[in-house]
Design a protein around this nucleic acid. Sequence first.
DNA 1: GAGAACATGCACATCGATGTGCAAGTTATC
DNA 2: GATAACTTGCACATCGATGTGCATGTTCTC
Lengths: 212, 212
Amino acid sequence: MPSDTDAGRRSRRRDAAQNREALLNAAVVILATEPDASLEAVAAAAGLSRRALYGHFSGRDELIVALIERGAERLVAAASTTDHADAPVAIALLCARLWDAVDHVRLLAQVALRQPYVERAASSLDPVRRRLTVFVARGVADGTVRDDIPQAVLARLIQESALAVLAEAARADLTDPEGRRLVMLAALGTAGLSWREAGALIADTPELAGEH
Amino acid sequence: MPSDTDAGRRSRRRDAAQNREALLNAAVVILATEPDASLEAVAAAAGLSRRALYGHFSGRDELIVALIERGAERLVAAASTTDHADAPVAIALLCARLWDAVDHVRLLAQVALRQPYVERAASSLDPVRRRLTVFVARGVADGTVRDDIPQAVLARLIQESALAVLAEAARADLTDPEGRRLVMLAALGTAGLSWREAGALIADTPELAGEH
DNA sequence: GAGAACATGCACATCGATGTGCAAGTTATC
DNA sequence: GATAACTTGCACATCGATGTGCATGTTCTC
């Protein structure tokens, strides 16, 4: 019985699922640079017709919601498997993991500002920010992170620092290792470490230096 | 002869200039939250009819360009009158000055991302970033600013840190002194100072502690 | 207070994007 | 290979935003 709940119907075709993914991927590319691009443009970039897009999504709204949820899912997965006893290391590691998902994040950063989706995108990323907040709190407790800024505010500023690096990466065409390092430096700097401390931390911690 | 170049024509009316300003101010408020708002909405917020708007600007494009130029003008003015022998102080002071112009900056930050205006907005703000780059270079030379990140990149990251605080200010409803202090802390942190160094610098420097 | 500058409200044409229906073709699945 | 799933292309209706013309008030300037 291939179908989930239906009785005599044939199962969904595999290529249909592939096309759905292609549409989402195309939407990431297109909407990241032009949030108001037509669905025509998105479908074309996916190699499909506009009409076919409506077979997968009821409209622009449903497309974007699906996009946000898929992106957030990956980020949350990356975030939830990240941890380290030393708070600054944990923060740097978390940012490095996010860096590895740049393409998906960039869209969220762009779309998150758009009016109708602000709330949804923000709440989707909540788990990430909450995990970051945990690290911040731990760091403040043991004195490795600054305590001159409210923890909730600090967590958001660190997150923004990381996003700023993403934007800069798109502009300056950074290599992967450069970008990784830069994200960590920016986050640690915002967390209160001096640049020499941050540099030493990254150099002395194998988990941070290595790839993936 | 009240007119500029025309011969027998009567001069422009004062209320017309006021309405033009009202339109620009309304555009700041509206477009900052909804970049694609209709010109109808902008005109209404200014207390004018849509038709009247077209009497001042040929269309959306001309409106936004005027907006960018007016905003940039103010920021550049603030930036060009800022200086200090100590590089970190100069950086903090520059950011504090920009903070005082929050309302105008917020729009630029929003609009600067929109496709057709990226270049224009960026070039309009060039003088500010160039001045920041001067401070960064000076700091690197005398060892008060980090040298582990390319100066051009660092200057942009500092600018982004400041903008992140502006976004946070809108969300968390910060008071003016809080926001001022936060902008400076964020900028100095990105510049490489530890949080204790940054705090001490602000506390010990009268120019930074005082209002305006 | 005469006249120009300005605002208003309507009408109208245009444009791009959206959403839907349907017949015909293609492709995967049973 | 039969059939359902899927895609395509076109037509068509709709919608909101834009830009412009024009007649009719208002309001400032001289």
